[in-house]
């Protein structure tokens, strides 16, 4: 299983800070598409993905137990 973290407007959309889902073996792009279909996530085309606290490309394959985070455009500073 994988812990899936949401931040900023995505957290508001999903309604929770994280979900526990099975994402192992899927690519980032496949998993993103799956979530969009299920949770109606807005503006996912602008959202970056992190695997285990490091930015990951759309082709990267998610491993069993990896922590996934969706990173909307950042606005710190």
């Amino acid at each position: 299983m994988n812990k899936i973290l949401f931040f900023a407007h995505l957290r508001d959309a999903v309604g929770v800070e994280f979900l526990t889902l099975d994402a192992g073996g899927k690519t980032v792009a496949e998993f993103k598409d799956e979530l969009v279909a299920k949770y109606d996530l807005p503006r996912m085309e602008t959202v970056m993905t992190a695997i285990n606290e490091e930015f990951a490309g759309n082709d990267e394959i998610i491993g069993e137990g990896d922590e996934i985070a969706f990173i909307p455009p950042v606005s710190g500073g």
Binding site: A8, S75, G76, G77
Partner: peptide, 22 residues
């Protein structure tokens, strides 16, 4: 402003919004 995962939500008199980019 490019790479650190921190977000700010602005609150105004007439609403609120997560700011979308740097």
């Amino acid at each position: 402003k490019e790479i650190v995962p921190i977000w700010k939500k602005e609150h105004w008199e007439d609403g609120e919004s997560w700011m979308g980019n740097q």
